[in-house]
Simulated assay, not measured.
Amino acid sequence: MGNLCLFSALSGVVLDHGKPVEGARIERSFTWQSNGETGVDETHTDARGSFSLPVIFRRSLLASLLPHEPFIRQTILIHHAGKTYQAWMFNKGEYAENGELGGRPISLVCRLEAEPAHRDGVFGICEPQ
């Protein structure tokens, strides 16, 4: 029974018109469709606007042994100054660590003034670097 990566570790920076945003709340959530599990964690940006969150692994004997199509809905929201920003919306279709961006670690630049858009298969205001 191996580790199944539901959400890879990530790091990023939140900017507002080029200036770091301190104290923004970063809320990460997932829904694992195979068994209906959901999860939420959060962190806050530091004085440089930086944040990071650890990898989320799960173990499942059935998911490790039985053929199925993995589907994990991933969401990251940024809460700042009374507003909520869609930072990352992604549907992960495998269990590989760093599989979201084809093997690259998730490193993001999130611009609060940006309009949400599709970038590298991800929807939101954050740009993978």
Rank of each mutant, 00 (worst) to 15 (best):
Met1Asp: 08
Gly2Ser: 14
Gly2Lys: 15
Asn3Gln: 11
Phe7Tyr: 05
Phe7Thr: 04
Ser8Tyr: 04
Ser8Ile: 11
Ala9Gly: 12
Ala9Asp: 10
Leu10Trp: 01
Gly12Ile: 01
Val13His: 04
Gly18Asn: 06
Arg25Gln: 11
Glu27Trp: 01
Glu27His: 07
Arg28Glu: 10
Ser29Ala: 13
Thr31Tyr: 07
Trp32Thr: 14
Ser34Ala: 15
Gly36Ala: 09
Gly36Asp: 14
Gly36Met: 12
Glu37Val: 06
Val40Cys: 05
Thr43Asn: 02
His44Tyr: 14
Thr45Asn: 11
Thr45Gly: 15
Arg48His: 04
Gly49His: 03
Leu53Ser: 03
Pro54Leu: 10
Pro54Trp: 01
Pro54Asn: 13
Pro54Gly: 14
Val55Phe: 02
Ile56Asp: 08
Arg58Ser: 15
Arg58Leu: 12
Ser64Met: 06
Leu65Met: 11
Pro67Thr: 11
Pro67Glu: 12
Glu69Asn: 05
Pro70Ile: 09
Ile76Ser: 10
Leu77Met: 10
His80Ala: 14
Lys83Trp: 00
Lys83Ala: 09
Tyr85Lys: 05
Trp88Lys: 01
Met89Leu: 14
Phe90Pro: 09
Phe90Met: 07
Asn91Pro: 00
Lys92Phe: 03
Gly93Phe: 02
Glu94Phe: 00
Tyr95Pro: 02
Ala96Lys: 01
Asn98Val: 12
Gly103Met: 06
Ser107Leu: 06
Leu108Arg: 02
Val109Tyr: 01
Arg111Phe: 05
Glu113Ala: 15
Ala114Pro: 00
Ala114Asn: 11
Glu115Asp: 13
Glu115Ile: 03
Pro116Glu: 09
His118Arg: 08
Arg119Ile: 12
Phe123Arg: 04
Ile125Val: 14
Glu127Lys: 03
Pro128Asn: 08
Gln129Tyr: 07
